[in-house]
Design a protein around this nucleic acid. Structure first.
Length: 644
RNA sequence: GCCGAGGUAGCUCAGGGGUAGAGCAGCUGAUUCGUAAUCAGCAGGUCGUGGGUUCAAUUCCCAUCCUCGGCUCCA
C-alpha cells in the first residue's frame, strides 16, 4: 500500500507506506538528502528515520529552516550532555532545549565548581564525540520503564519530569552511550555537528523557580560548517561594538561612579544634549496631543504609596523609608508618578465635561533593583519616565487608548524603530492574588486594550502573567544589539487606582462617578530609550539629536581665525559642534571627528578662507565638496529638522 | 539576591611571590601641513578595597565592593 506525500511545491508523490523522511529526501535529490536534518509532517517536526504511515504533506528541513536549526541545536544539547556524562560521571540532568541562538543544558554537578577551563574541556569532548557519527535513536518507553531507568541512574530531575507526563507518550532518545528523556525530534547523527562553541556558564534555578536548587546552565552553539561558526562569532563581535555601555563611554554620553552608587547614571554634557532633545520632542508632541505638563516632588509620604498599593507590593524589598528627625514622618523615594498625579486630579472637583484630563511629567523615579539586574542604562535604580496619566470617562477609554498608541507609534517611527513587538501583558489567571482589583475591572481593561490594538491594526502577542499589579498593559518591546529584549513604551488601563484614591467626577446625570486611568510612557524611561537608541544607530545619531553636529577643522594654525569665525557663525544659528584648532594635520583631525561620529566636518584652509566657503565632509561618506557658508547653513537647517 | 567570570595608568590590554609594562589619550617642544593616526621628549599606577599567609603580596588565601554573562525579579 502506498501513501500520498505532498511536497511544498504542490506536487504529490506516492511512496510505500512506512516510508522514511530520509528516503523521501533521497528520492528528491542526493544533494538534499545530504543536508536534510529533519522532516515536517503535517506541520509537526519528525525525525528523518520515522516511518510515515498515512498520506501527508511534508517539508524536508535543512539548516536553512528555522525548525531545522532548532532540531540541530536540540540534538547538540544532547551531544553536550553526552560529553558531560563522559567527563563527569554521576552528573544529573535538568533540561536542555534549543534557544534562539544555540542551546543550553541545565545540569547538577553535585556542587562541583564549573568554570571556563571546564567549558573548554567539555567542548573538546563534544567535538570528539561528534565525529563518532552516532545515530539519534528514538525509543517508545512506558512510564514505569522510564521511571525505572532514571531511578537506577539516579536522576531526580528527569524523574520529576516523567511524573508529570502521560503514560504512552514517553520517548527516549539515545546516541552513543547517552540516553535522554526527550520528545525529539533529532537530526540523523552527531556527524552533522561540525563546529562547536560553548559560550558561557550560568546559574539557573530548576524549573525557573528561585526556591529551587540552582543548576549549572551551560550555553553553546553549533553549526554544520566551521565557517558559519566563525561568521557567527564575528557577528557577535560586531554587535558588541554597538553596545551602549561601550559607546556611552567612548562618546562621553553617560557614566557610572561607585561613589555615587551602582545603577545611578551620571549624564555627561553630550548625553544630556541627546536626552534634552528627546524630551523636547516629546513635550511638543504631548502639548499637541492635549497633555498638561505637571511637576511633582521626588519623595512622597509613605501613606501615599500605602494608598496606591505600591507599598504593600514592593515596599519591603525597596529602598527603605526616609525618616524626618523630629516628627518621625516617613517618606519614600518616588517609585512611581501615578499617586502624585492622582492627587493633582483631586485638587478640584471634576466634571464629565473636563475629561479627559491628561497630566504629563518627566518624572524621575527610584526603584530598588537587585544588584545582579543592573545593566548599563537599560536597568538602573534611578530613571526618568516620560510619564503621563489620562483620567477619562469609561466611554472614552478606547478612544484615548488608541490616541496613545498613535503617539507611541509616532515616536517609534520618528526614531526609526521598525522592529518592535507589541505585547499585550495580561494577568496570570492562575495567580490572581498577585493583583489588586475586581475580576470585572480586569476583564474590561484587558478587552479595552485588545480592542484598541486591533483598531489600529497592531499585530500583538498576548503574554499571561506580565501585567502590572493594578492593570494590564500594552508594551512595546525592542531588542538590543545582543538580542536582549527590553520594554520601551507602555500603555496601561487601570480601573483600580482611581478607586483607591477615591477619584471622581460629576456626570451629566449629576451623580458622582469614578474615572478610568490610563498610564502611559512612550519612551518608557529616557535612560532605557537612549540605551536602545544608541545601539539602534550604533552611535550615529540623526542630525537633530547628535550632541556634536559639526566639527570645524582648520587645515593649519594659519586658518584658525577663519575657522573660529565659521564656528561662531554656526553657533549663532544654534548649530552645535566643536572647533578643532589643535596643532595637528588635517588627516588627524578628520580621523578624530569620524571616530566621534560627528555628522558634518567643515574643513577650512586657504581655498575657503578667502570667500566665506567651507569644504563639507559627511561622516562615513567622505568629501562633499565646497560650498559658501551661508548655503551650508541653509542645507543644514533642512536636514536637521526634528520630527513633529 | 543566586551561579560563574573578572577588576593592573584616563582608555584598551600584557605581566606575575622580590614593591610594575605597551599602545592610544594627556603634557612639553619641534612641525604649519588639503580629507581616517607628523615626530621627539616627559609625565602618569597604594595593581578595586580590607584582612590573612610570608623575610617579602599587585601576584597565594579569605572577606568585601564594583563590573561582565546568565537565572530570578522588573510598579
Amino acid at each position: 500500500m502506498n501513501v500520498k506525500i505532498s511536497l511544498p511545491d504542490g506536487s504529490v508523490r506516492e511512496y510505500p507506506q512506512g516510508v522514511k523522511g530520509s528516503e523521501i529526501a533521497s528520492s528528491i535529490s542526493e544533494g538534499l538528502a545530504r543536508v536534510s536534518l529533519a522532516i515536517e509532517v503535517n506541520g509537526e517536526v519528525w525525525d528523518l528515520s520515522r516511518p510515515i504511515t498515512t498520506d501527508a504533506s511534508i517539508k524536508i528541513l535543512t539548516w536553512n529552516d528555522k525548525s531545522g536549526k532548532t532540531t540541530f541545536w536540540h540534538s547538540s544539547a544532547h551531544l553536550l550532555a553526552e560529553a558531560l556524562e563522559a567527563l563527569y560521571p554521576g552528573v544529573k540532568f535538568g533540561t536542555g532545549p534549543a534557544i534562539e541562538n544555540g542551546f543550553y543544558y541545565d545540569v547538577d554537578l553535585n556542587g562541583k565548581p564549573f568554570g571556563d577551563d571546564d567549558l573548554a574541556a567539555v567542548e573538546a569532548k563534544m567535538k570528539e564525540l561528534a565525529k563518532h557519527d552516532s545515530q539519534y535513536v528514538r525509543k517508545d518507553v512506558s512510564k514505569a520503564d522510564a521511571l525505572k531507568y532514571f531511578t537506577e541512574k539516579g536522576d531526580p530531575y528527569k524523574i520529576e519530569i516523567i511524573n508529570g507526563l502521560e503514560d504512552g507518550k514517553i520517548t527516549f532518545y539515545q546516541q552513543g552511550g547517552f540516553t535522554d528523556l526527550c520528545i525529539g525530534p533529532h537530526i540523523p547523527n552527531t556527524g552533522f555537528i561540525k563546529a562547536v562553541k560553548l559560550l558561557n556558564v550560568a546559574g539557573a534555578y530548576w524549573r525557573n523557580n528561585e526556591n529551587n536548587k540552582m543548576l549549572t546552565r551551560i550555553y553553546g552553539i553549533t553549526f554544520p560548517k566551521a565557517k558559519e561558526l566563525e561568521e557567527y562569532l564575528h557577528l557577535i563581535e560586531e554587535a558588541k561594538k554597538r553596545d551602549h555601555r561601550k559607546l556611552g563611554k567612548e562618546l562621553e554620553l553617560f557614566a557610572f561612579s561607585e561613589r555615587v552608587g551602582m545603577g545611578l547614571p551620571l549624564w555627561l554634557p553630550k548625553g544630556t544634549i541627546l536626552r534634552e532633545r528627546l524630551e523636547q520632542f516629546m513635550r511638543k508632541a504631548q502639548i499637541k496631543a492635549g497633555y498638561d505638563p505637571v511637576v511633582t516632588p521626588h519623595i512622597g509620604s509613605k501613606a501615599l504609596y500605602v494608598t496606591s498599593g505600591h507599598y504593600e507590593k514592593y515596599g519591603k524589598d525597596s529602598f527603605q523609608p526616609i525618616h524626618t528627625p523630629d516628627e518621625g514622618e516617613e517618606f519614600l523615594l518616588k517609585p512611581m508618578n501615578c499617586p502624585h498625579h492622582c492627587e493633582i486630579y483631586r485638587t478640584k472637583p471634576r466634571s464629565y465635561r473636563d475629561l479627559p484630563v491628561r497630566l504629563a511629567e518627566f518624572g524621575t523615579v527610584y526603584r530598588y533593583e537587585q544588584s545582579g539586574e543592573l545593566h548599563g542604562l537599560t536597568r538602573v535604580r534611578g530613571f526618568t519616565q516620560d510619564d503621563a496619566h489620562i483620567f477619562c470617562r469609561p466611554d472614552q477609554v478606547k478612544e484615548e487608548f488608541v490616541k496613545v498608541i498613535d503617539l507611541v507609534l509616532h515616536v517609534f517611527k520618528s526614531l526609526g524603530f521598525e522592529n518592535y513587538t507589541a505585547q499585550v501583558s495580561l494577568r496570570d489567571p492562575e495567580n490572581k492574588a498577585k493583583y489588586i482589583g475586581e475580576d470585572s475591572a480586569w476583564e474590561k481593561a484587558e478587552a479595552a486594550i485588545q480592542e484598541a490594538a486591533d483598531e489600529r491594526g497592531l499585530s500583538t502577542v498576548a503574554v499571561k502573567g506580565e501585567a502590572a499589579f493594578y492593570g494590564p498593559k500594552l508594551d512595546f518591546m525592542v531588542k538590543d544589539a545582543l538580542g536582549r529584549q527590553w520594554q520601551l513604551g507602555t500603555i496601561q488601563v487601570d480601573y483600580n487606582l482611581p478607586i483607591r484614591f477615591e477619584l471622581e467626577y460629576v456626570g451629566s446625570d449629576n451623580q458622582k462617578h469614578t474615572p478610568v486611568m490610563i498610564h502611559r510612557a512612550p519612551f518608557g524611561s529616557l535612560e532605557r530609550f537612549v540605551a536602545v537608541l544608541i545601539e539602534h544607530c550604533a552611535g550615529n545619531f540623526p542630525l537633530w539629536l547628535a550632541p556634536d553636529q559639526i566639527a570645524v577643522l582648520p587645515i593649519s594654525e594659519r586658518f584658525n581665525d577663519y575657522a573660529k569665525l565659521v564656528y561662531e557663525k554656526l553657533k549663532e544659528q544654534d548649530i552645535r559642534g566643536l572647533l578643532d584648532d589643535r596643532d595637528e594635520k588635517i588627516g588627524r583631525k578628520i580621523r578624530d571627528a569620524e571616530t566621534k561620529k560627528i555628522p558634518f566636518m567643515l574643513i577650512v584652509g586657504e581655498k575657503e578662507a578667502g570667500d566665506q566657503m567651507v569644504a563639507v565632509r559627511k561622516h562615513g561618506q567622505g568629501d562633499q565638496g565646497s560650498v559658501p557658508l551661508e548655503e551650508f547653513v541653509n542645507r543644514f537647517r533642512i536636514e536637521c529638522s526634528a520630527p513633529v
